[in-house]
Design a protein around this nucleic acid. Structure first.
Lengths: 111, 111
DNA sequence: CAGCATCCCTTAAGATACTG
DNA sequence: CAGTATCTTAAGGGATGCTG
């Protein structure tokens, strides 16, 4: 919502909000990892297998950073899982996935 | 939607979709630029002013990449604006902004 | 104003090998 | 299996100065 007199203020605030999100979910893998965990808890190896192309170092680091931000946690069995907090990210993940899928259809149809 | 027998397949496809989106919107500025243009068409300088911190080189490059992907276009007055296609990104931008705003509130309240 | 060219530095990311 | 350590390369990004 943009009120007439508040246009610039609201614009800046919204841009900051976007950048906040990007700071936390930035990088090549974080959102994908969360998308992967959104479908169920996974062990390190399972994640590495499903995230085709990621190396153990990257995966390890990304998991750490997500953990620090309380977006994932590790349970007693050593499985990574989403947290109560990261549940709030599900709409974000879904909308990203949906757009990507739709975009792929468009690109396909252009050829 | 995940069907029992299709779990892995659907998982992989969804992950690919997420990565597609990330490839296109990746980088530090693209989503923010779109968020900025979502509020109205802007000239180069206006964008640079609102995107505090970006330099002309970066802005120029990001704009090109967005243009190539048909996510923005430049009109006769030299103003950048979203395209019909990038209108489909508005939900993405909104949900990112909303999450960032909410996250900020949470972080604030923790101190 | 709009934007390209150049230079340079920092970070991200990949490969590989290794440890508890 | 679940990571860590090390090394190297690629990409991201900033500063500055210049052109139409």
């Amino acid at each position: 919502m943009v009120c007439p007199g508040e246009k610039i203020y609201d614009c800046k605030r919204q841009l900051l909000a976007i950048q906040d999100t990007l700071d936390i979910l930035g990088g090549k893998w974080k959102v994908t990892i969360l998308g992967c965990l959104a479908m169920g808890e996974k062990r390190f190896m399972d994640l590495q297998r499903e995230l085709a192309g990621i190396g153990p170092k990257m995966l390890s680091r990304e998991l750490h950073e997500l953990e620090v931000n309380s977006l994932i946690q590790k349970n007693e069995e050593g499985k990574y899982m989403m947290t109560e907090y990261s549940a709030s990210l599900k709409p974000v993940i879904e909308v990203l996935a949906a757009w990507g899928a739709q975009h792929r259809v468009k690109v396909m149809s252009m050829q």
